[in-house]
Amino acid sequence: MTETLRIVPVAQHHRAAWDRLYAGYAEFYRATQTPEMRDRVWSWLHDPAHEVNGLIAELGGVPVGLAHYRSFARPLSASVGCFLDDLFVDPAARGKRAADALILHLGALARERGWSVVRWITADDNYRGRGVYDRLAKRTMWITYDHTP
Rank of each mutant, 00 (worst) to 15 (best):
R139M: 09
S71T: 14
A98K: 02
E36A: 11
P91C: 12
A92I: 05
P48F: 10
A67I: 05
S77Y: 15
R97Y: 14
G81S: 11
T122D: 06
P75W: 15
F28K: 04
G129N: 14
L55V: 05
G24M: 03
W44T: 01
A110C: 00
P48L: 07
H105D: 13
R6W: 02
V118W: 10
A16F: 05
L109I: 01
Q33R: 13
E36K: 05
S77C: 10
A123F: 14
A123V: 01
F83H: 12
L59E: 06
H50D: 14
A67T: 02
A23R: 04
E58I: 02
A31E: 12
Y29N: 02
R94I: 06
K96Y: 13
W44Y: 12
R97A: 15
R30L: 11
Y25A: 02
R6V: 09
G54M: 08
K96P: 11
S116A: 14
P91M: 13
L76N: 11
R139N: 03
P91I: 08
A93P: 03
T2F: 05
L104C: 09
S79A: 15
F88W: 14
M141W: 07
V132K: 02
P149W: 09
T32Q: 08
A23T: 13
H46M: 02
V62A: 08
V80E: 14
L102I: 03
L5Q: 00
D100S: 06
A99S: 14
A92P: 01
L66I: 07
P91V: 12
P63H: 01
N126H: 10
W42G: 03
V10C: 03
H14N: 03
Y22P: 00
A99N: 06
T2C: 04
L87N: 08
A57S: 05
R74I: 15
I56R: 00
L5Y: 09
G24H: 01
P35R: 00
P35W: 03
I7K: 02
D19P: 04
S43C: 10
L104D: 11
G65C: 07
I103E: 10
R70L: 13
A101D: 07
V118D: 08
L109N: 06
I143Q: 10
A49Y: 09
L5D: 09
R97N: 15
V80P: 02
I103G: 12
L106M: 13
V89F: 13
Q33Y: 09
T2L: 12
R94V: 05
G81A: 13
Y69S: 00
M37D: 15
T148S: 14
S79G: 09
K138Q: 13
E58A: 07
L5F: 02
G107N: 07
R74S: 15
W115L: 14
D85C: 06
